[in-house]
Design a protein around this nucleic acid. Structure first.
Length: 478
RNA sequence: GGCGGCGUAGCCAAGUGGUAAGGCAGCGGUCUGCAAAACCGCAAUACCCCGGUUCGAAUCCGGGCGCCGCCUCCA
């Protein structure tokens, strides 16, 4: 097995060995949402991607410190406030809470720190002062701008040269900027807008500076891993690098990691196109683990094209795994010791899934190996029922599941309750159980007609029956 | 125009030099009262096209076609 984690670094455009600054400590910062609307699948993918990365790192022995911010003061929030009449703070509060709830619903573990911009304005002002003092920024009216000319390596992340960026590009000509590409560290406030007192007058932080401030506050001037969606590479992360390195003189981040975007019918999901799918909408139809499975069955850097059919397929795939787990659980100990064939498959799985994850967190590859193991488990059950090897295999599946955040439910709960709640059928568990009892009685009398009638009826209601040696079981159809 | 990326069977999707994981859907078989699930098997002559490098390329290089993202708020 390889002993180095390989990770694709946007900065070098190569896979590199993951090497912490110190021991086995990894510090991660991920750009969280600007809280002015409900979380959509794009937010969810980013959150799940880095959730799995941090889970895996912990699993293989790293000590992870993970920060993800809330940008709770921003032009977009102010615009929303102007549209709705709801105060900006209230908008931010509502969507911050929603985001926390939604990510929790998706099984995303809470980061170590979840700092908010509005709670760090003094630190932001200090950082801006430092940048000005070091000669990288200038005041102009009530604004403060970062001067990209002073930062020669500007463009190193997004691979673009400042001269080229200007050509044919739509840029607001702001009279107060020395260079059109300069960006605001501090924005003077207009009447009616939220503001904080600063050396440059009343105003608020510009976009970008909050992430530099908070990441460095919680993780240090230099830290290992900074993540976010690919759409943030420019200008957001480019500007973060410029500001941070201008302020400290040291390398800001060692590995830049970017997840691919969600597409709908091969077009980016975005507010301007209006094809947004919110997390809570998706959760009314598919289980949280199916949604995670959808994300994780793609390599994290690739685009993921969303469709209802694809989601249904993921739900079916998840169901297959849970059915296998349930079968395994239902086996009785029959005294047999082990199954060498399964043991071989288990060993293979143990190494292959770890290897896949070591290679740039390739969850899609790892999942392929899981399905191989599931087949091996089923085969073993068919031949031997319960064995100690089966027990070991289930243990390993649980470990794997805990890294990906899937297969964490009791199989029965998934196959019945979880799915019952996602389907439109109006049937209680009690009613279902009664009908099954009646059918079991009919079957004993070999009254196949009545038995089939009941089965067909339940089927029409979306309930699938299965007659097993242990009795009749049911689940909700996909 | 600049930068980045993608094009693998019916659909989804791994795979950066040695003759192609996995899932979903389909077909046949075993099992079953019949089903379901599971297993076994099948199928789809699956690597966008054309050149090149190589003993050997889906994988590297060049060219072409198609699609997408960023360059403007965005996970």
């Amino acid at each position: 097995m390889e002993n180095k984690i390989r990770i694709y670094n946007t900065l070098s455009q190569k896979k590199e060995d993951l090497a912490p600054f110190e021991g086995k400590k990894i510090r991660i910062y991920v750009c969280g949402p600007t809280v002015y609307s409900s979380a959509h699948l794009g937010h969810a993918r980013a959150a799940v991607t880095f959730d799995v990365i941090q889970r895996f790192l912990k699993n293989v022995g790293y000590e992870v410190t993970y920060a993800r911010n809330f940008t709770d003061i921003d032009d977009k929030i102010i615009n929303k406030s102007n549209e709705t009449g709801i105060p900006p703070q209230e908008i931010a509060r509502i969507y911050t809470e929603e985001y926390i709830e939604d990510m929790d619903s998706l099984g995303v573990q809470a980061p170590t720190f979840q700092p908010k911009v509005t709670e760090h304005v003094p630190e932001i002002i200090d950082l801006i002062k430092t940048i000005i003092d070091r000669g990288y920024a200038y005041q102009s009216g009530g604004d403060v701008f970062f001067s990209i000319k002073k930062f020669p390596s500007y463009g190193k992340l997004s691979k673009r040269a400042p001269d080229e960026m200007l050509a044919g590009v739509r840029i607001d000509i702001n009279e107060r900027k020395e260079d059109p590409l300069d960006f605001a560290l501090w924005k003077g406030s207009k009447p009616g807008e939220p503001w904080w007192e600063s050396p440059w007058g009343q105003g608020r932080p510009g976009w970008h500076i909050e992430c530099s401030t908070m990441s460095m506050k919680y993780l240090g001037s230099s830290f290992e891993l900074h993540g976010g969606g690919k759409d943030l590479i420019f200008p957001h992360h480019e500007n973060e690098i410029a500001q941070s390195e201008a302020a400290t003189g040291v390398e800001f981040v060692r590995y830049w990691v970017h997840n691919g975007l969600i597409e709908i019918n091969r077009a980016k999901m975005s507010k301007s196109i209006g094809n947004i799918i919110n997390v809570r909408e998706a959760l009314t139809r598919w289980s949280k683990e199916a949604i995670r499975l959808f994300f994780l069955s793609h390599q994290y850097q690739n685009p993921a094209d969303f469709s209802e059919d694809t989601m249904d397929e993921n739900e079916s795939a998840l169901e297959r795994l849970y059915i296998t787990l349930k079968r395994a659980k239902d086996q009785k100990n029959n005294g047999r010791k082990g199954d060498s064939e399964l043991a071989g498959n288990l060993n293979k799985f143990k190494t292959t899934w770890i290897e896949a994850m070591y290679d740039d967190f390739n969850t899609a590859d790892a999942l392929g190996n899981l399905f191989d193991l599931a087949r091996a488990i089923n085969r073993s059950i068919d031949s031997f029922g319960w064995t100690s090897t089966l027990e070991e295999a289930l243990k390993e599946v649980r470990v794997f599941g805990s890294v990906l955040g899937i297969l964490e439910l009791d199989p029965k709960d998934y196959l019945q309750r979880e799915k019952l709640s996602k389907s439109a059928l109006e049937m209680t568990e009690e009613e279902i159980k009664q009908l099954i009892e009646e059918r079991t009685a009919s079957r004993k009398e070999k009254n196949w007609k009545r038995a089939d009638e009941i089965r067909d009826y339940l089927s029409s209601k979306g309930i699938l029956l299965e007659d097993t040696p242990q009795g009749t079981i049911w689940r909700v159809k996909s």
